[in-house]
C-alpha cells in the first residue's frame, strides 16, 4: 500500500471536514483495502467512517424501511424487519461473499464496490476505469465475465454487487451527506451509472459525499421473492449472472413485479419494461419465458460471453418461477 494518514472519524462533521479529493472514506475495508494492496486505489488519507452512528434500521415515513449506511451487511440481512418484509434483499445480501466479509462490509460500502474485471486489477494492462485513456483490454481480450448491456467503447466491466441487484428489483433511494453538511436523496436507479466515456466513475456520487442511509419502498415482494446466483463454484464466488425477482400476486394475477440482473452491466440491470409486461398476467412458465425473451432481446454479447444471453433467459425463468412457487 502507498503511505496514507489515518483518521478515525468520531462524528459526521469530523469525517466531512477531513475529506479532501485525494482521501477516501473507509467502511469495512473489504473492497478498498484489497484495491489499495493491488495499488489500484491510491488515497493519501483514509477516513474511517464505519464506526459512525448510521447503524439503525427503522420504519420511514413512506411506509418503507430505512437502513443505515454503516450497518454491516450481515446485521442488515439478518434484521427481523428486513427478513420479514424484504427477504429478497436479505437473500441477495446473503448470497454475497462469506460470513466474515458480510460481518465487515457496510451497506454504504457495498454500493461502492468496484468491478472485478481483471484488467482493472492488473496495472500492466490497459483499463480506462483504472487509468482513463489507457484503453480497454477486455473488449478484444478475455471478456467472458463482461457486460452484455449498456457498455461503451471505453468499458465493458460489470458491477459485482449482489445486494445492489436486490435493491434494484425492490426500488430504493440512497441518502447521502454532502460535504457542506446538507443531505441529498438519489434514486437507486440513478445511483450507479453506465460507463459512457467516463468509466472511471462508477456512481453519481460527488466528491466527499457520504452514504448514510438506504430507504426502501413499501414492502411488496415479501411473499414471492427469489435471488438466483449462478457462479463457477457453489459459494464464495462472484456471479456469472444473478437475478433478483419479486412478485406481488392478487387473485391469481401479477399486480407488481420487480426484476433485475447482476453480472451483465456496469450497474445492476433493472428490467423496467419486463416488470410492466408481467403486471396483469397470470403467472406461468410461458409468461416467464416471454418475460425472459423480452428481457434479453437487446443483449449484445462479446465473443467470450455469448453464453450470458442463454443463461440470462434461463435464470429469469427460474428466478420468477421460484419466486412464484413460494408458499405465501
Amino acid at each position: 500500500m502507498r503511505p496514507f494518514t489515518y483518521t478515525g472519524a468520531k462524528n459526521k462533521e469530523q469525517a466531512l471536514q477531513s475529506y479532501s479529493p485525494t482521501s477516501h472514506y473507509l467502511g469495512g475495508g473489504t473492497n478498498l483495502l484489497d484495491l489499495m494492496k493491488e495499488d489500484v486505489e491510491r488515497p493519501d488519507q483514509l477516513i474511517e467512517v464505519a464506526s459512525l452512528d448510521y447503524k439503525k434500521i427503522f420504519q420511514n415515513d413512506k411506509g418503507g424501511l430505512t437502513i443505515g449506511g454503516m450497518l454491516s451487511n450481515s446485521e442488515t440481512a439478518n434484521h427481523p424487519e428486513v427478513r420479514k418484509n424484504y427477504p429478497l434483499l436479505s437473500m441477495s445480501m446473503l448470497s454475497a461473499a462469506t460470513a466474515q466479509i458480510r460481518n465487515m462490509a457496510t451497506n454504504g460500502g457495498n454500493l461502492l464496490q468496484r468491478t472485478r474485471c481483471p484488467y482493472f486489477f492488473e496495472a500492466s494492462m490497459p483499463c480506462n476505469k483504472r487509468e482513463p485513456g489507457s484503453g480497454c483490454g477486455a473488449i478484444k481480450g478475455m471478456n467472458s465475465l463482461h457486460a452484455i448491456f449498456g457498455y461503451s467503447d471505453s468499458c465493458i466491466a460489470v458491477h459485482p454487487s449482489d445486494m445492489c441487484v436486490g435493491l434494484a428489483a425492490l426500488g430504493a433511494t440512497v441518502e447521502v451527506q454532502k460535504p457542506d453538511g446538507s443531505t441529498r436523496i438519489i434514486a437507486f436507479d440513478d445511483f450507479h451509472r453506465l460507463p459512457g466515456s467516463q468509466p472511471e466513475k462508477d456512481t453519481n456520487l460527488m466528491p466527499g459525499e457520504l452514504i448514510t442511509a438506504i430507504h426502501l419502498e413499501r414492502p411488496e415482494f415479501s411473499e414471492h421473492y427469489y435471488y438466483l446466483k449462478i457462479r463457477e463454484r457453489s459459494s464464495y464466488a462472484f456471479a456469472l449472472i444473478s437475478v433478483a425477482a419479486g412478485l406481488q400476486l392478487k387473485g391469481g394475477e401479477i399486480t407488481k413485479a420487480g426484476l433485475a440482473m447482476g453480472g451483465v452491466a456496469h450497474k445492476p440491470w433493472k428490467f423496467k419494461e419486463v416488470e410492466k409486461f408481467l403486471v396483469g398476467k397470470k403467472p406461468d412458465e410461458s409468461i416467464f419465458e416471454a418475460a425472459a425473451e423480452l428481457a434479453m432481446k437487446d443483449a449484445k454479447p462479446f465473443e467470450g460471453n455469448t453464453y450470458k444471453v442463454e443463461m440470462g433467459k434461463k435464470a429469469i425463468v427460474r428466478a420468477l418461477s421460484q419466486a412464484y412457487a413460494r408458499k405465501s
Partner: peptide, 28 residues
C-alpha cells in the same frame, strides 16, 4: 492477504472477521 481465503479469520467483538482486510489502526 486479500480476503479471498479465510485463513486470517479472527473474532472481533465476538464476530468472525478477516484480519488481512482490517487495519490495526481501526481496532482500538
Amino acid at each position: 492477504d486479500h480476503g479471498q481465503c479465510g485463513a486470517c479469520t479472527v473474532l472481533v467483538d465476538g464476530k468472525r472477521k478477516l484480519s488481512c482486510l482490517t487495519l490495526a489502526a481501526s481496532c482500538e
